[in-house]
Amino acid sequence: MRVAYWPGCVSRGFTPELHGSMELVAPLLDIELIELDRANCCGAGVIAEHNQELVDTLNARTFAMAQRVAGSAGMMNICSTCQGAQSECQQRLDADDDYRRLINQHLRPEGLEYKRGDDWTNKNLLWLLVEEIGLEKLRERVVRPLEGLRVAPFYGCYIVRPTGRLGYGEFPDRDRYLEWVIDAVGATPVEYAGSHKCCGFPVITMNKATSLRQAGRHLADAIDADADCLVTPCPLCHLNLDLQQPDAAKFVERPLDIPVLHFPQMIGLALGLEPKELGMGKHVVRTRDVERKVAALAAV
């Protein structure tokens, strides 16, 4: 399956291990990535807060580039925030013909146009994996079932809410997919209070306490539920849950030491890739215990 691939800014910035692991995992799932290397930032909700027309134009630009990728099954992203920010723009672009024409005028000098199409989709890897590739195929490809590994899912708000905008009408189980995939790769999904809540990242520069109390609380809940690690399809969540974890511990006044995997890393482990090549050494919270468990599995 060929997809127009939008990796997002953070996966090539502060979480380079995400982009790296995606590139390794893609061929193992028969995904051909055509990277949109000329596309721009999705705005992450911040440009939307600044100027709606601007953010809609910037994302229409990305969509238009993706629509030009010949033979692609649509656009794929690997970031909950990109997904949510882009879906918001797409909803407006699709809702009103006049508005879409206005936005497209800004793209014309570049020879681009976003076309509303009933079949054209922009899906993050999680949705694409479950809905297009299928969990059956994933199960077939698993060479190292992650048996015994207890994984706490962390979705990221942008692919959970608002359901009306995010295709839950057609796919009502999108808030269960992470559990399904965790199960499909042989690991055990852990139920805990924070799975669909907010990591707090968007206010890290504005209100550190509000931000890190959220991250800290969810990490603590996952630890209390005996999770070995968290897995998230959102690199921004990863920043608050992993990079900021030592600070988050201060805000919730308890030690926290739980690794946080990127979604493609977890898939990669099950597909036989090694922690090191998946960039797990780049995490702030050491992934040693997870690696040990995985290594033990390999030995079996």
Binding site: N51, Q52, E53, L54, D56, T57, Q91, R92, D94, A95, D96, D97, Y99, L102, H106, K115, R116, G117, D118, D119, G164
Partner: peptide, 23 residues
């Protein structure tokens, strides 16, 4: 866009969330 004085906003509350036309 920023060079203009006005900010254009499309309020889906007013126009409805589904488009009028098709693809």
């Amino acid at each position: 866009i920023e060079g203009r004085d006005e900010r254009i906003e499309l309020n889906l509350y007013i126009v409805g969330e589904e488009g009028e036309g098709g693809a």
